[in-house]
């Protein structure tokens, strides 16, 4: 099978994730969309590993997972703090830092 298909799938997932970030307002859903984009990138890494026949792509995907975990922890903590102070999980609410 043409290995490009994996990459195209990754691209589609990435695009859907980006679209979710753009249109959803619930901070948690936005966050999950970001996770989706990271997973798409992971898929591309693993596919690249498959194409080249080396394991380096898989290692990169592994590191992405680690970083994603760290990001999730901090991001969710921020969401909790915002929710605690503003009683809202909408990312449009937290817009004081502007002109």
């Amino acid at each position: 099978m043409n290995p490009n298909n994996y990459l195209v799938l990754a691209g589609i997932l990435f695009t859907i994730g980006a679209f979710g970030v753009l249109v959803r307002r619930n901070a948690i859903i936005v966050f999950m969309s970001v996770e989706m984009m990271l997973n798409a990138a992971n898929l591309a890494f693993v596919a690249a590993s498959h194409i080249t026949g080396t394991l380096d792509g898989q290692v990169a995907a592994f590191f992405v997972m680690v970083v994603a975990a760290a990001e999730v922890v901090v991001g969710l903590a921020i969401i909790v703090v915002i929710f605690r102070t503003r009683r809202s999980a909408s990312i449009d609410e937290a817009s004081l830092l502007k002109y």
């Binding site: 043409n2 490009n4 195209v8 691209g11 695009t15 498959h50 194409i51 026949g53 394991l55």
Partner: peptide
């Protein structure tokens, strides 16, 4: 923008092209 991005990405991947995979 999302559609444009997806389209660009897909066309880029398909035109660049890997015909075969080595497998791990």
């Amino acid at each position: 923008l999302a559609f444009a991005f997806g389209a660009l990405l897909t066309s880029a991947i398909t035109t660049t092209g890997f015909s075969a995979a080595a497998g791990v």
